[in-house]
Simulated assay, not measured.
Amino acid sequence: MSRASIAPAHPGYFADPFVLRSGDRYYAYGTGLDGQQEPGGLAFEVLSSPDLRTWVSHGGSLVPVTDEPRAYWAPEVAERGGSFYMYYSVGIEDKGHHLRVAVSASPLGPFVDQGLNLTPDEPFAIDPHPFQDDDGAWYLYYARDDLTGERPGTVLAAQRLDDMTRLVGPPVPVLGASSEWQRYQRDRSMYGRVYDWHTLEGPFVVKRQGTYHLFYSGGAWTNETYGVGHAVADHPLGPWREPQEGPVVLASGLGGLRGPGHNSVVRDGQGQDHLVFHAWNALGTQRELHIEPLVWTSDGTPQLALG
């Protein structure tokens, strides 16, 4: 029998979670701390665990880029050559976000920003996700605003990542909105006009049995419309196709979850995949960390193992 409800893996606010496995430990990073609570404070809380079940907080992990108030969103960390690279966005509240990279010798930080705006030509870019292919090439997936499609809003793009600190070539389109469930808000004022705004964000890619699988979040992160969809491709840059329409991986109501989304995937030492995501608590006052085993159906669709 499936569980009636899914409990959070750690108390407290922990949005947009990402988990890195490094050595025999796991490290979770999330949106929450902005480093401005106290002088010299660090942004992005980092947790560690030996088993994906028991987590300990180590406080903030990123040295803020400025003393001025800023919003720090959605960190992900890649390990290469003994260094750890943190990708994230910085903006003023929900405006003007750009992607940046910081480096540390430890997964616990402190991560130091490298002074690089990775997306200087974008009016808005969030949710960076670094992915390494089997041939060693790195790619960075992210969400950006695009007003040219039939459903204007936030879409997904990707670029080659060179030396972990530079994006190569123009953004390659990955996915745009194609369905009503991806609607963020009707009559939203953006860029001097009013749009029926749609949102795709939080991209995350894994390769399983020769196929590239893209997880993404759609809808409005603020409410029950939020969920996780799934697309597949034969190359990291696509073309991507969605075998099934809808939030087929996560949706409100599953295991009692409310507005689940912005996921990552981590594989444990036994080869088991786990879905890492956030969902609202019952009072709707904070987004909490969830980690659940992930299984793949016979047709290649990822699902939570709730039995």
Score class of each variant (00 low, 15 high):
64 P>E: 06
147 L>A: 15
66 T>I: 12
80 R>M: 06
172 V>C: 06
87 Y>K: 04
147 L>N: 12
70 R>S: 07
169 G>T: 04
137 A>Q: 15
137 A>K: 15
159 Q>A: 01
57 S>L: 03
115 G>T: 12
40 G>R: 14
163 D>G: 11
51 D>C: 06
52 L>E: 00
110 P>L: 09
148 T>H: 04
41 G>V: 12
110 P>V: 14
138 W>G: 00
155 V>W: 11
111 F>G: 08
69 P>L: 10
47 L>G: 06
138 W>E: 08
67 D>P: 11
51 D>R: 08
123 P>G: 10
35 G>M: 03
126 I>G: 01
45 E>G: 05
120 P>Y: 08
79 E>D: 01
132 Q>E: 15
169 G>H: 06
101 V>T: 07
127 D>M: 05
58 H>P: 08
123 P>H: 04
104 S>N: 04
175 L>F: 15
113 D>R: 06
75 P>Q: 10
70 R>G: 12
68 E>N: 09
136 G>D: 01
55 W>D: 02
104 S>I: 09
141 Y>H: 05
151 R>S: 01
151 R>M: 13
59 G>P: 07
171 P>L: 09
80 R>N: 01
163 D>F: 14
81 G>E: 08
149 G>E: 12
43 A>L: 14
173 P>Q: 02
100 R>A: 03
48 S>C: 05
144 R>F: 13
89 S>R: 03
148 T>K: 07
77 V>N: 00
46 V>Q: 01
92 I>Y: 01
151 R>E: 07
96 G>K: 05
40 G>Q: 14
140 L>D: 02
97 H>D: 00
146 D>C: 15
70 R>M: 07
36 Q>P: 00
131 F>T: 13
163 D>L: 14
161 L>R: 01
47 L>I: 02
88 Y>S: 02
122 E>W: 14
118 L>K: 09
92 I>S: 12
114 Q>T: 07
166 R>H: 14
59 G>E: 09
62 L>Q: 02
172 V>N: 06
43 A>Y: 04
145 D>I: 13
132 Q>V: 11
66 T>P: 06
100 R>G: 03
166 R>N: 01
59 G>K: 06
108 L>E: 09
67 D>E: 10
130 P>W: 04
144 R>M: 14
